[in-house]
Design a protein around this nucleic acid. Structure first.
Lengths: 121, 121
DNA sequence: ATTGTATTTTAGTTTAATCTAAAATTGCGT
DNA sequence: ACGCAATTTTAGATTAAACTAAAATACAAT
């Protein structure tokens, strides 16, 4: 089908843009990406990684039990330059921070638990 | 040129892109826009017109009892070219299609295995 | 085979977006 | 003033997106 809408949808999300920024110039493991976004669970990050991958915006490399992700800048076409401009613009950083804060506004207090600990009996 | 997240959000919606395309080169009244989108109500169109206006992407002119809208292409910055390419340039689609095809040669996602245990009653 | 770690996926919940239908507004003409 | 046409707005319903917690999977080492 058509790729363009999925591309714009992928980039319209602040969370996905943050992931793209993290893996823009270096590959990172899923765990490392999650460690940089401590306000969401590992599962949520993994779902966004899947969205981005299905939009063709990430390349993946598996090594040992890790999976490394990196942005496919060429797949973003002119949007790549747009994102770089957004990230370089300091005014933009402020607005993005405000937007993320806004997105965090509604959800319940973040009781961040140790993730996915298998329960010992 | 300030590129705000709201701009990307505005453009991520197929419905709003449709409106933008309608008023890209000529101004149209709200009613005329709605007539070109018979699958939604007038109210829904009006709400999207407001979203686009609040994102700074439309200019408005009132004449008689009509309100005419036109895209503010300069407010879209590089996104304007992106949209024009999406609408007009078949090369854009071909290029992205080629990239999709190339990606098919990479590691394919593994087939999901049905592993839900059947629930006994 | 079992354990341990990293990651993905599922199922259900919550949040935000978008729609419809109807009421309210605005402006024009009589 | 009144009625009419165009448009906006409100309130509620529906839909889609994003999140959480837990379970499932994958892979390496033992």
């Amino acid at each position: 089908m058509s790729l363009e809408p999925s591309l714009l949808a992928a980039v319209a999300s602040a969370r996905r843009r943050e992931i793209l920024r993290l893996v823009w110039k270096e590959e990172l493991s899923a765990g490392a990406i999650h460690r940089a976004m401590p306000d969401v669970t590992f599962g949520a990050v993994s779902l966004q990684l899947r969205s981005l991958s299905e939009a063709g915006l990430l390349e993946t490399r598996g090594e040992k039990q890790f999976r490394f992700y990196r942005a496919r800048r060429e797949a973003l076409g002119p949007v790549a330059e747009l994102l770089e401009r957004m990230w370089d613009d300091s005014l933009w950083k402020l607005k993005l921070a405000a937007e993320l804060e806004e997105e965090r506004r509604g959800p319940r207090p973040q009781r961040r638990r140790a993730r996915n600990k298998t329960k010992k009996t």
